[in-house]
């Protein structure tokens, strides 16, 4: 299968001096990022950064440019977000902080890791050679986040709410009902995750929402009973702000915006506090 623009995929090993040197070993690096050691890049999107190919000679930067004007592009947008979540929870489960978590927290983190990895691999299979490349995480940011349970759960809350907002905002751009159904099957699972993480965080005696309400708090569900929703550009702005993706290696950007369709006003999730 080829993308709408006719490009084909090919496989390369991702890697660079900076990526490989920061973790203590290549094995840990791969575990940390949840990458299989291969990356598929679209030749038309191929952008070489001369600083990044010094170690393996094959690794290089890849630009993930999303064409959101068709279903393939919207599904690739979802694929990118699932990559991010899957890599994050993979890093969480591999972190030393994980071993100090409660049994409940561990169960949730492992479940979320499993679900997000399945989502990612599902999209990888469905998109085939039309998929965008693999994202590289900013390992120093991930190391900081995974240093303790509090920042892990806070980041998880941000990712899950953002995932809900992203799927809710992207559904209207899908033109094939089969694709909309698949997105619907996934977004409700993300919402379950979001509620679970928020509820876990309430258990940490966080202030801001009345007891027993944080799972679907007034900060994410508005007075009409509607959940968060963001257009893709707003989602990617927030993703970039987390500094979790290493933008020097896999810059994620929107090449073509979706064809405008009527929808509802944006309502992004708040930055998790504290």
């Amino acid at each position: 299968m080829t993308d709408a623009d006719g490009s084909d995929g090919r496989e390369l090993v991702i890697g660079s001096a900076e990526q490989l040197w920061q973790p203590s070993s290549r094995r840990n690096f791969l575990r940390l990022l949840g990458l299989g050691g291969t990356v598929v890049m679209l030749p038309s999107l191929f952008a070489c950064n001369s600083d990044d190919n010094s170690v393996t000679g094959t690794g290089t930067a890849t630009a993930v440019t999303l064409n959101l004007s068709n279903d393939t592009g919207i599904l690739n947008y979802a694929f990118a977000l699932e990559q991010l979540e899957a890599a994050f929870y993979t890093a969480v489960v591999a972190s030393s902080a994980f071993s100090g978590m409660s049994a409940e927290q561990k169960e949730v983190m492992v479940d979320l890791r499993n679900h997000e990895v399945i989502h990612r691999e599902f999209f990888r299979q469905v998109l085939g050679s039309a998929r965008v490349g693999d994202l590289a995480l900013n390992s120093s940011t991930v190391t900081t986040i995974t240093a303790n349970t509090a920042t892990i759960l806070k980041t998880a809350e941000m990712f899950e709410d953002l995932g809900v907002a992203a799927y809710n905002g992207a559904g209207k751009y899908l033109t094939d009902s089969a694709n909309l159904l698949v997105a619907g099957k996934i977004v409700s699972v993300e919402a379950r995750h979001a509620a679970a993480i928020r509820d876990l965080r309430e258990g940490l005696s966080l202030s801001g929402t009345p007891a027993g309400t944080r799972f679907a708090g007034d900060d994410v569900v508005n007075a009409s009973g509607l959940d968060v929703k963001l257009e893709p550009s707003g989602v990617l702005t927030r993703v970039a702000a987390t500094n979790v993706i290493d933008m020097t290696k896999t810059s994620v950007s929107i090449g073509t915006q979706p064809t405008t369709k009527p929808g509802t006003d944006d309502q992004g999730p708040p930055s998790p506090t504290p």
Binding site: V164, Y167, G169, R192, A195, A216, G225, L226, K229
Partner: peptide, 25 residues
């Protein structure tokens, strides 16, 4: 799908129901 405003609102209700189900579980 023929009315994307209604679709989007329905999706936003859909995920709220999922949050509820999660918390009850």
């Amino acid at each position: 799908m023929s009315n994307t405003t209604v679709l989007e609102a329905a999706l936003r209700i859909h995920s709220v129901e999922a949050r509820h189900a999660s918390k009850i579980r």
